[in-house]
Design a protein around this nucleic acid. Structure first.
Lengths: 229, 229
DNA sequence: CCTACCGATCGGTAGG
DNA sequence: CCTACCGATCGGTAGG
């Protein structure tokens, strides 16, 4: 089944500069935001293709045709959700890249911030991780590029850690970065906000294990003697 | 959108005992197997709800209505794919549980075998991990139960490792098991059989990092002095 | 934001 | 395995 919905969208720089009303919900409420939130819920719960515009309209409380007074298309709605989620991650990344902490502390911060972001809107990130593939053409290309950029920021921390001698020199970049991201992103499958652990605790526990796994022998010895003190 | 396709299916024990023709493709070829394989490809690439029976029929080279001479319904096809995938994992698990190796070696075997299984049919496991939620009613319940059982086998290895002193006593079971499964299952997003690494190499690299992360202080010291020898 | 509707496509079936 | 078809539902639009 082809996904060749045609969308004429502003270039990336235009989004950052002018943010036209049609492309991002600025208002904290209003019909447009209600549609956006309903779409997150339904796309997250049932998936993009299994959700009809009629489902969204019903949840919002208007008739199906009326949706198009506020949005351009179903795919535009998906694009908006996916991009806002990845942008959140990219903004985390740029904060951490700017910090002066050593690699291990930077990695822990990145893991915890990522986990916190996911926990704040599990359904949204379920859409970001699993539904982006229903974007077509350049929308899809753009989303893939943004994800790649984010993954690169983890690679950078790893590289610096290896150079400083904190991390093992035999790490495979690709396997390691995707293992960390996989452990993090898989949380949408099991983490529940109503559980006993906060997102920060989960992030800390995850970092405890993953960081010990990354450490070089020299770094391990320093670390264990530190604990024993 | 409700998924209330009604399916009358044999009970679990019947599947194991008699395996009626209608429920699992025994033949390595034939029209039924062709449909099964086409469904894996299409569900894996485009998702269950975005794939139509007409898409499947076209790929197989028959007319849409003719599919129903071989299968019961679209959902029955999905169920078959999902269950066969999880059963593969459960059979890995029972082999490893029966082995007499220490916890760390068992965990490495489990990680490598899991990774190898995924690599042998990436599209199938993409369906297993991402499309199972379109199962309805008891089909879904059964799949969830089988997954839970598999995750439990990782918990068992962890528990034994902590008791033996090989693994850190401060591990959170839930976080740790799902981190390992997350790192493994996320590979469907990035692992390519045409890449430079074999699945075994990826599994080994992953185990190197994850296992070091699991080790207790005592176990770490033994391990680093072993390496230096 | 509603009324009323478009053409296309959906999973599945009766009868052969 | 094909012919011919069912009722239901899809994303989206013209005109108000």
């Amino acid at each position: 089944m082809p996904h060749n919905v045609k969308l004429i969208l502003p270039a990336l720089e235009d989004i950052f500069l002018v943010t036209p009303k049609v492309n991002a919900p600025q208002e904290a409420s209003g019909p447009r935001m209600a549609i956006y939130k309903a779409a997150i819920e339904l796309f997250g719960e049932n998936g993009y293709t299994a959700t009809s515009m009629r489902d969204i309209a019903k949840k919002v409380g208007i008739l199906p045709g009326s949706l198009y007074a506020h949005i351009d298309s179903k795919e535009a709605l998906l694009l908006e959700i996916v991009e806002s989620g990845i942008k959140r991650f990219l903004s985390i990344e740029s904060n951490i890249a700017a910090s002066l902490e050593p690699p291990e502390a930077r990695m822990r911060s990145a893991i915890k911030a990522h986990m916190t972001a996911i926990s704040e809107n599990l359904k949204k990130y379920s859409v970001v991780f699993q539904q982006w593939r229903y974007l077509s053409g350049e929308n899809r290309t753009r989303a893939v590029e943004m994800r790649r950029q984010y993954a690169q920021s983890f690679t950078n921390i790893l590289t610096q850690g290896i150079e400083s001698g904190d991390f093992r020199a035999d790490l495979d970049m690709r396997v390691t970065v995707f293992s960390i991201l996989g452990a993090l992103n898989w949380t949408i499958e099991w983490y529940s906000a109503t559980g006993t652990m906060t997102a920060e605790e989960v992030g800390d526990k995850m970092a405890d294990t993953l960081l010990q796994g990354l450490r070089s022998d020299a770094s391990v010895k320093k670390q264990t003697s530190k604990k024993r003190r």
